[in-house]
Amino acid sequence: MKFKFLSLAAIAAVGGSLLTGNEALAQAKTIAIDGSSTVFPVSEAIAEEFQKANKGAIRVTVGISGTGGGFKKFCRGETDISNGSRPILKEEIEACKKAGIDFYELPLAFDALTVAVSPKNTTLKCITVAQLKTIWEPSAQGKVMKWKDADPSWPDQAIKLYGAGADSGTFDYFTEAIVGKAKASRGDYTASEDDNVLVTGIENDANSLGYIPFAYYEPHKAKMKALGIDWGKGQGCVLPSLENVLAGTYNPLARPLFIYVSKKAADKPEVAQFVEFAMTKGPALIREVKYLPLPDEAYKMGIARFKAAQVGSGFGGIPEVGLPVAEILKRTPKM
């Protein structure tokens, strides 16, 4: 009896689907966003407020396929907006071009990586990029096991490393910025895709050193100590903070986060409305979810770029690190 009902339901379901088809979905005003899970909390906050402001007349959905996975869907025309924790890459630009998808590139917020140690660590206040490289580069594996191996003035104690897992965008960014090559890292450290695991590890281990996104450091700052970063380019030691990131001095561990808006989608009034909402109401929401907003000019520039229909990427598909805000804003997009 049960099977009879279930199979009838299945047949009815397939039949019904043939009748209604996919078109009806397009009629409902829905904005589809997908991409980086790093950008997700920001998008979620903006989407939530945007829906509330429109009393639910326009629906927004957000997925977390990752930056690369998001661009794949975006360049097939399946999503309206793609979240990126890095600029779009060459192959992705090609794929979009092939599918005839033009896009706007709009910087949305900053994400800063924090290098943190246990508060019990009294020797370290500042670390240079060169020292970080000595600790984290692939050849350090099995060699740099004690603090003094990285710097003779540091204590003769085992160093416990915590870092992002290889599938994480944070891992790509840290290795690119510190070692100079994406994904080049030693492997003998406690790795996790879940930043909360790293937070717990750094807090509970007196000899810990690890890197985590700033948003994870902020709520735990009583229990861990952020190190200042010295890029060795004359700026000296810079602590991770909103002011320093905005001033463009927290380098090379601050990175911009982007949204990419399909031009075809932007012709729809609801998408245009959403972009405007993100650029005006965004900064407050970004602060609320503990990310770092860009300076006001960035959002004004975003709106201007959008209104002037300036499509394309300003980065030419090549990954770069440590760009100050002013530099990012100066880049004019080209296709």
């Binding site: 997700f40 989407a47 829906q51 959905t61 997925g63 977390i64 396929s65 869907k73």
Partner: peptide, 12 residues
Amino acid sequence: LITIGALTFIAF
């Protein structure tokens, strides 16, 4: 489900 594109934020 994440692979086929399940959403994460959906408020309807």
